[in-house]
């Protein structure tokens, strides 16, 4: 049972007060059930989690770092897209 033979899984945790699952790291595990167990043991030791997702790392489709300028640079000059020009009434709560 070596790590080399075990697939890699990405771990997403929904925290106690969080609304969405967030990526927190990766683990090695032979299959989905063991990946959930390993994710619980490695990433929820301090009461972080209420829910865990694990996804085979091989299933992640990633953008090409070489496309960075094309994809992300044009947004740098569009400051008006940040929701900082509005007063949000307290009654709205967390957005």
């Amino acid at each position: 049972m070596t790590e080399k033979k075990m697939p890699l899984w990405e771990v997403f945790i929904r925290s106690r007060n969080g609304l969405a699952h967030q990526h927190c790291g990766s683990i090695h595990a032979p299959d989905a059930e063991m990946a959930l167990i390993a994710a619980r043991d490695v990433y929820t030791r301090r009461g972080e989690g209420l829910s865990i997702w694990v996804v085979p790392s091989a299933a992640i489709v990633a953008s090409d770092p070489a496309d960075k300028d094309m994809l992300f640079e044009p947004t740098a000059s569009k400051v008006y897209r940040h929701p900082t020009f509005y007063e949000i009434p307290d009654e709205v709560g967390h957005m």
């Binding site: 049972m1 790590e3 075990m6 683990i27 090695h28 595990a29 167990i37 390993a38 043991d41 490695v42 030791r45």
Partner: peptide, 12 residues
């Protein structure tokens, strides 16, 4: 332990 994951699981 055989792997980092099991190291933490057994310690837990």
């Amino acid at each position: 332990a055989p792997t980092l994951e099991e190291e933490m699981a057994l310690a837990n």
